[in-house]
Amino acid sequence: DRYEFNINGVHFTIDDAEEELIKLIEELLKRGARAEEIEEVIRRWER
């Protein structure tokens, strides 16, 4: 599934997002994580 979200006006799209990654990102968003922090999480996840 495609997952899309915005952080401070920056648009992100993840194709074939796994449910666990989506939950992790949503938790980070609730905590007010910065875009750079979430980008790093996504990079690590994709390795």
Rank of each mutant, 00 (worst) to 15 (best):
D1L: 13
D1A: 09
D1N: 14
D1T: 13
R2G: 08
R2K: 14
R2S: 13
R2A: 12
R2M: 10
R2F: 10
R2H: 10
R2Y: 07
Y3H: 07
Y3M: 06
Y3D: 02
Y3P: 03
Y3V: 06
Y3I: 05
Y3W: 11
Y3S: 02
E4N: 03
E4T: 07
E4V: 07
E4S: 07
E4Y: 04
E4K: 02
E4L: 02
F5M: 06
F5T: 04
F5P: 02
F5N: 02
N6I: 11
N6W: 15
N6D: 14
N6M: 12
N6H: 13
N6K: 09
I7R: 01
I7D: 03
I7N: 04
I7K: 01
I7V: 15
N8A: 12
N8T: 06
N8Q: 13
N8P: 03
N8Y: 05
N8F: 06
G9K: 02
G9D: 11
G9C: 02
V10R: 06
V10A: 08
V10F: 10
V10S: 09
V10T: 10
V10K: 13
V10H: 07
V10P: 01
H11S: 12
H11R: 08
H11P: 09
H11T: 15
H11K: 10
H11G: 10
H11L: 12
H11D: 10
F12V: 08
F12E: 01
F12I: 08
T13A: 13
T13R: 09
T13V: 14
T13S: 14
T13G: 04
T13D: 08
T13W: 12
T13I: 14
I14E: 01
I14W: 03
I14A: 02
I14V: 10
I14C: 02
I14K: 02
D15V: 13
D15G: 07
D15C: 02
D15N: 12
D15L: 11
D15P: 12
D15T: 10
D15H: 13
D15A: 09
D15E: 15
D16T: 14
D16C: 05
D16R: 14
D16Q: 11
A17F: 06
A17S: 07
A17W: 05
A17R: 07
A17N: 07
A17H: 07
A17T: 08
E18T: 09
E18L: 04
E18W: 03
E18G: 06
E19S: 10
E19N: 10
E19Q: 11
E19M: 09
E19V: 11
E19W: 10
E20A: 13
E20L: 09
E20K: 08
E20Y: 04
E20S: 08
E20P: 10
L21V: 02
L21W: 02
L21Q: 02
L21C: 01
L21F: 06
L21I: 06
I22G: 03
I22C: 02
I22D: 01
I22T: 06
I22N: 01
K23C: 04
K23M: 11
K23G: 11
K23W: 11
K23Y: 11
K23V: 13
K23E: 09
K23F: 12
L24G: 04
L24D: 07
L24E: 15
L24S: 07
L24H: 10
L24F: 06
I25G: 00
I25N: 00
I25R: 00
I25W: 00
I25C: 01
I25A: 00
E26T: 07
E26V: 10
E26H: 13
E26P: 00
E26M: 10
E26F: 07
E26S: 09
E26K: 11
E27V: 14
E27G: 12
E27H: 10
E27M: 13
E27A: 12
E27T: 14
E27D: 11
E27F: 12
L28G: 06
L28E: 08
L28D: 01
L28K: 08
L28I: 05
L28N: 06
L28M: 13
L28F: 05
L28P: 00
L29Y: 06
L29P: 00
L29V: 10
L29R: 07
L29C: 04
L29A: 08
L29S: 05
K30T: 13
K30R: 11
K30S: 12
K30A: 12
K30M: 12
K30Y: 14
K30E: 14
K30V: 11
R31H: 11
R31T: 12
R31M: 11
R31Q: 13
R31N: 12
R31P: 01
R31F: 11
G32A: 06
G32V: 02
G32F: 04
G32R: 00
G32K: 01
A33T: 09
A33Y: 05
A33Q: 03
A33I: 05
A33M: 05
A33P: 05
R34Y: 10
R34K: 13
R34F: 09
R34H: 14
R34A: 15
R34T: 15
A35G: 07
A35K: 13
A35Q: 14
A35V: 14
A35W: 09
A35C: 05
A35I: 12
A35T: 09
E36S: 08
E36N: 06
E36V: 07
E36L: 04
E36A: 10
E37W: 03
E37D: 11
E37F: 08
E37I: 07
E37K: 04
E37L: 08
I38S: 00
I38R: 00
I38P: 00
E39T: 10
E39P: 00
E39D: 09
E39Y: 07
E40C: 05
E40S: 03
E40L: 05
E40R: 03
V41Y: 05
V41E: 13
V41N: 04
V41M: 08
I42M: 04
I42R: 03
I42E: 00
I42S: 01
I42L: 04
I42Y: 04
I42Q: 01
I42K: 02
I42W: 02
I42V: 07
I42A: 01
I42F: 02
I42H: 01
R43E: 13
R43Y: 06
R43L: 15
R43A: 14
R43G: 06
R43T: 08
R43D: 13
R44S: 15
R44G: 14
R44F: 15
R44M: 15
R44H: 15
R44E: 15
R44T: 15
R44I: 14
R44D: 15
W45E: 01
W45F: 08
W45N: 01
W45I: 01
W45C: 01
W45L: 01
E46F: 13
E46K: 06
E46R: 04
E46D: 08
E46C: 00
E46M: 07
R47I: 15
R47M: 15
R47V: 15
R47K: 15
R47D: 15
